[in-house]
Computed example of a mutant assay.
Amino acid sequence: MIWPFTRRRRVAPPLDPALARQAPAGLPWLRGLDAARRARLDALAATFLDEKTITPVHGLRLDAVQRLRLAMLCCLPLLEFGSEGLHGWSELVVYPGAFRAQRSHVDAHGVLHEGDEELIGEAWVHGPVVLSWADVRADIASPADGFCVAVHEMAHKLDALDGVLDGTPPLPRDWQRQWASDFQRAYDGFCETVDAGHDTALDPYAAEAPEEFFAVCSEYHFSAPRLLESAMPTVAAHLQRFYGPPLL
């Protein structure tokens, strides 16, 4: 476990064996897990289902297999970090597709801007994770395209564990300093490329903020690891240490 503190958790009931056999068949990433990491993922998914409420909305229905697949996807980023990555929130809200959320911000001139934004995922610092089921299914159908919305939002949850969304999750002190330095350097270079109008190997959305850079790079670790390693070898090395070896 990477998390530097521990707390006692209630032991979750094990997964139903029939569900545990059926659910992974629909998740291509799980084929890259050895027996030990697969057992770890099963235990994490069991804890997720025991501790989190999965709430489908707007008429969406999710059966037991689909709920377990969601739990497994959300727990992939926790294989090395451990169950402490589930701390501090209690609900996964699932929309049928993209959803709208009201946003407001004050610009550099002090002017308030308000409006609606269409989202496929969201992670509240002290609240739920929200996902678009259509986009989760699209990620499963094309697992090597560089996108995984569940991983993206769980990266935000890991980032927020130390109370600050800054692209640096809680780590041992020496590693955290090196991580922050290496990610900042890579982020600054990436932003310069985007601002200059040049094409980028990674989704330009990663230039939005350091926390989005971390979350987008996390998606590539799971869905296009060779591309990430080619484009940003130092970032890829940190993520391989943090998340474990790539699965694709």
Rank of each mutant, 00 (worst) to 15 (best):
I2H: 11
A12M: 07
P13S: 09
P14L: 03
A23K: 04
A25M: 10
L30S: 02
L33Q: 07
D34Y: 13
A36R: 09
L41I: 10
L44C: 02
G59F: 15
G59S: 10
L60T: 02
R61S: 13
A64Y: 08
V65H: 01
R69D: 06
A71Y: 06
M72G: 03
L73Q: 15
L76C: 01
E80V: 15
F81Q: 01
F81A: 01
S83T: 06
E84C: 12
L86H: 03
R100N: 15
D107K: 12
D107I: 11
G110M: 07
V111P: 00
L112M: 14
H113F: 14
S132V: 06
W133I: 12
W133H: 02
V136S: 00
A138S: 11
A141R: 15
D145W: 10
F147S: 06
V149K: 00
A150D: 12
V151N: 00
E153K: 00
H156Q: 07
G163T: 04
L165F: 14
D166S: 11
T168R: 13
P170I: 06
P170Y: 08
Q176H: 10
R177L: 10
Q178M: 11
S181A: 11
D188I: 05
E192T: 09
G197A: 13
T200S: 05
E211F: 14
F213P: 00
S218K: 08
E219I: 04
E219A: 02
Y220R: 03
S223R: 04
A224T: 09
P225M: 07
Q240A: 15
Q240H: 11
L247M: 15
